[in-house]
Amino acid sequence: MSGNGRPGAHEVTALLKRYAQGQSESLNDVVALVYEELHQLARQQLRRSRVGQHVQTTVLVHEAYEKLVQGKTQDLRDRRHFFAVASRAMRQIVVDTYRADNAAKRGGGAPPVTLTVSHLLDMDKPEQLVAVYEAIDKLAGHSEDLVETLDMSCFGGLSNEQIAELTGCNVRTVQRKLQRARSWLMHFMAQDIKSD
């Protein structure tokens, strides 16, 4: 499956391993790889889908996993890292897409790429996504753990059960983490808007 210049499963697995062993610069490498792959997949999906149809972030992330690592690693830690990374990359893609679309719209360009995550937002106010994104960044400054869970749920499309399995805690804990993350996000967003 791994073609010319595309990240091979081996490469991703190796990067994940290095990251797991504490070499944090590997994280950026693997994020870059996964980002590239997800973007490719998103474009393919969009080409295949009809106008106005949503591209499911869940589908993309799982497809990326199939493509990049499936079968090459049985390590739960690898899987966890992969999904954490992929979910974060997905978030990045969603925000980038919105930004690009906004730019394109002003220039009279193509209709916006619509991702499922947009249901969190007012369709006519994509700039809110940016606010959400910034709040997530703020939260990440306090708790990577909460953001990872949030990413997996919102952008990776993983179910609470899947997240529980990957992160080694129970479902109830995942639910509470998501609740906490929500509270904090809204707190940060409220703060931001107040200080505008």
Partner: peptide, 8 residues
């Protein structure tokens, strides 16, 4: 999330 964005 969008509600809170509009109504902090």
């Amino acid at each position: 999330l969008s509600d809170i964005a509009a109504d902090p």
